[in-house]
Simulated scan of single mutants.
Amino acid sequence: MGTSNGSSRTDFILLGFSDRPQLEHIISVIVFIFYIITLVGNTTIILVSYLDTQLHTPMYFFLSNLSFVDLCYTTSIIPQMLVNLWGPKKSITYGGCVLQFFFALDLGATECLLLAVMAYDRYAAVCQPLHYTVIMHPELCQKMVLIAWLGGLGSALILCSLTLKLPRCGHREVDNFFCEMPALIRMACVYSKVIEVVVFALGVVFLLVPLSLILISYGVITQAVMRIKSAARWRKILHTCGSHLTVVSLFYGTIIYMYMKPHTSASQDEGKFLTLFYTIVTPSLNPLIYTLRNKDVKSAMKRILWIKINVQRSHELNRKIRV
Results as ranks from 00 to 15, higher is better:
Thr3Cys: 08
Ser4Gln: 09
Gly6Ala: 03
Gly6Glu: 08
Gly6Pro: 04
Ser7Tyr: 10
Thr10Trp: 14
Asp11Lys: 15
Phe12Asn: 05
Glu24Thr: 11
His25Tyr: 09
Ile26Ser: 05
Val29Ala: 14
Val29Ile: 14
Ile30Gln: 05
Phe34Thr: 05
Leu47Val: 06
Tyr60Cys: 11
Tyr60Ile: 09
Tyr60Ala: 15
Ser67Lys: 11
Leu71Trp: 08
Thr75Phe: 07
Met81Val: 02
Leu82Trp: 04
Leu82Gly: 07
Asn84His: 05
Leu85Gln: 02
Gly87Phe: 11
Pro88Asp: 14
Lys89Trp: 06
Lys90Tyr: 06
Ile92Asp: 14
Ile92Glu: 11
Tyr94Glu: 03
Tyr94Ser: 03
Tyr94Ala: 04
Gly96Asp: 03
Gly96Thr: 05
Cys97Ile: 14
Gln100Pro: 02
Phe103Met: 04
Leu105Ser: 10
Asp106Ala: 03
Asp106Gly: 01
Ala109Pro: 15
Thr110Met: 09
Glu111Trp: 03
Cys112Tyr: 08
Cys112Ser: 08
Leu113Gly: 05
Leu115Ser: 02
Tyr120Ile: 00
His131Ile: 02
His137Tyr: 03
Glu139Gly: 04
Leu140Tyr: 15
Met144Gln: 05
Ala148Phe: 07
Leu150Asn: 00
Gly152Leu: 03
Ser155His: 12
Leu164Pro: 07
Lys165Met: 10
Cys169Trp: 02
Gly170His: 03
Gly170Tyr: 00
His171Arg: 04
Arg172Met: 03
Glu173Trp: 08
Glu173Phe: 05
Val174Leu: 02
Asp175Arg: 11
Asp175Gly: 03
Phe177Tyr: 12
Cys179Gly: 04
Glu180His: 13
Glu180Pro: 00
Pro182Asp: 01
Pro182Glu: 00
Ile185Pro: 08
Ile185Asn: 10
Cys189Ile: 00
Tyr191His: 15
Glu196Asp: 15
Glu196Arg: 01
Val197Arg: 15
Val198Ile: 04
Gly203Ser: 01
Gly203Ala: 08
Pro210Trp: 09
Pro210Ser: 04
Ile216Glu: 02
Gln223Cys: 00
Gln223Lys: 14
Ile228Met: 00
Lys229Ala: 00
Lys229Asp: 02
Ser230Gln: 07
Ala231Thr: 12
Arg235Met: 04
Lys236Val: 11
Lys236Cys: 09
Thr246Tyr: 14
Leu250Val: 09
Phe251Glu: 09
Ile256Leu: 12
Met260Gly: 06
Lys261Ala: 15
Val281Arg: 10
Ser284Gln: 11
Pro287Cys: 01
Ile289Asn: 11
Ile289Met: 02
Ala300Ser: 13
Met301Cys: 14
Met301Lys: 04
Leu305Arg: 15
Ile307Ala: 07
Ser314Cys: 10
Lys320Phe: 10
Val323His: 10
